[in-house]
Nucleic acid binder design. Sequence first.
DNA 1: AAAATTTAAGTTACCGGTAACTTTTTTGAT
DNA 2: ATCAAAAAAGTTACCGGTAACTTAAATTTT
Lengths: 315, 315
Amino acid sequence: MTASRVLRDEGGFSEKTRVKVLAEVERLGYLPNRLATVFAGDKKSTFIGVSIPDLGNEVFTHVLEGIDRKLVSFNHQTVLGMTQHVLAEEESWVETVLSWQPAGLILTGRAHTPRALQLLAGAGVPLVEIWDLNSSPIDMCVGLNHFDSGYDMGRFLLSKGYQRFGYVGTSHDTANAATARLHGYAKAIEDGGGRLTKQLCLNDIPGFYPGYYGTEQLLSADPSVEVVFFQNDNMAVGAVQFCEAQKISIPGDLGIAGWGELPIASVLPYRLTTVQVNHLRIGQLAAEKLLLRINGDLLEPVSDVGFTLVAGDTV
Amino acid sequence: MTASRVLRDEGGFSEKTRVKVLAEVERLGYLPNRLATVFAGDKKSTFIGVSIPDLGNEVFTHVLEGIDRKLVSFNHQTVLGMTQHVLAEEESWVETVLSWQPAGLILTGRAHTPRALQLLAGAGVPLVEIWDLNSSPIDMCVGLNHFDSGYDMGRFLLSKGYQRFGYVGTSHDTANAATARLHGYAKAIEDGGGRLTKQLCLNDIPGFYPGYYGTEQLLSADPSVEVVFFQNDNMAVGAVQFCEAQKISIPGDLGIAGWGELPIASVLPYRLTTVQVNHLRIGQLAAEKLLLRINGDLLEPVSDVGFTLVAGDTV
DNA sequence: AAAATTTAAGTTACCGGTAACTTTTTTGAT
DNA sequence: ATCAAAAAAGTTACCGGTAACTTAAATTTT
């Protein structure tokens, strides 16, 4: 007991004892078993469960980095969950991670299985849903309106005079943010009298090469497309590379728009038409809100980090 | 006790009781507290601590993905540690994560603080050091010989007739793998009678833009450089973009070599001179070995995943 | 120097699951 | 129906840290 007091520096011991205890700790190479502390006090651990769809999609690596950097600085640990965009995976991960008594959770996306929702409600753990904005989150939410960002892009492209639109992404899931962007884009096109003539959902990760071969597929399926909106910048850059290889002039023959403003954009000889999003900020803000909530603070449940359309030279 | 038996399906209960227990579990939304199980049995948890330097460096995201995918499929959870290439950060993370009784650890790099080594030895937890090959690992090791890969690149560039060499990276740490590559490269140049006229270590992450402005800095500091070896492909691609913007012909005016074969390479109109490394495989293999060891198997301590030099068109 | 007060150190019980053991109930054999 | 064996259910104790409490030692006050 006295040793416990010394190690937690909570007073009630003499200097002589302190020295003796610390010497013994040193000698034994003693490390406290934190499980016992959490277990005993019916407290929470310092684990924060963080689920993201996958690391192949670069946008999420930036989000994760923002989260972890913030968490570490407040002595919390990230327990990673890669759900592969599959809600059932998320559900089983939620169950596992809750059984470890986490201090809080960060989940990507607003869609969850009924059982996951039930588990989360039962656990009553502080929770931030990130990425997609959700006006009535389970607990808190940090993200942006993906539908609106797609809509704005659609309207912008219409204003440039395009009539025949294409889309290439990798999402199958109806419940995810990229699909919301596609829906916003489609709605804008419909509202503006254009036609979304071809949309492609590849079974792949949204990276450079899928952008390359996705463009090939799209154009061979419908050569009349005038402009294509991609799931993210890396795909759009892949598309630009395909066009250059095929001597398709941009934006003369084909317009190209990305999403997310990823690092590659900073070294291109052209300015990519895209939507700027501060991925790192989403992660940091989510972690910040979670830590404040764990600390007992009451917070605005929803934070909209917004987005900025970048006109660029590729349309 | 009977409920515990039912939930673990270890027999010694009647069908009638099983149904009753499961119904009650359902009704209460009961979730076992796994901390108690681990704590009670003096067993290990299903946590695997995974430390990587940072997520801004794309190579590590692939390694991490490989690790987590494998771990998840064997019901283990990744507890992330981002050490920012700082050994003191790794040390404090090791201490924290060990106090949570992990089933195993994966650490990036072979250099650790004395105290970290002592903690690891004391804990006796299965451990894989990844990335840099280490003939006498603490426990196990999965990686490749970075020095050799740098040496081979240097020799290859010499064979192309280059005399004045440059290097651009972002590492300050003498103990990391990128530095080992630089040393190998420098050694090859020395052995072959060339001159490493300029080497640059930027205070940044090894991404596209640092490759861009790093090349600018390098060339303005020493315009006589004939070929530059970059810390990774993303930096090399940034360099190519800089050269194109400046009308510096590749490989006519300047040779460029990358390392790691990152995804961007697949969509470029040229074949980048680089070193191919299977990042995902390193992660998967490390996780695999760790899980086998946790399972009690005795394994070959060191796994060399090797590398392949890709000649490319940029030198 | 004795009593009152403060400080230091020690005891007990608990968190939740489960190993090891004991008791109760059921099943089957004679 | 009686007893033995097997199956099911229940009890106890423990893991390691710490809250809450008690006891002991040191310090201060009268």
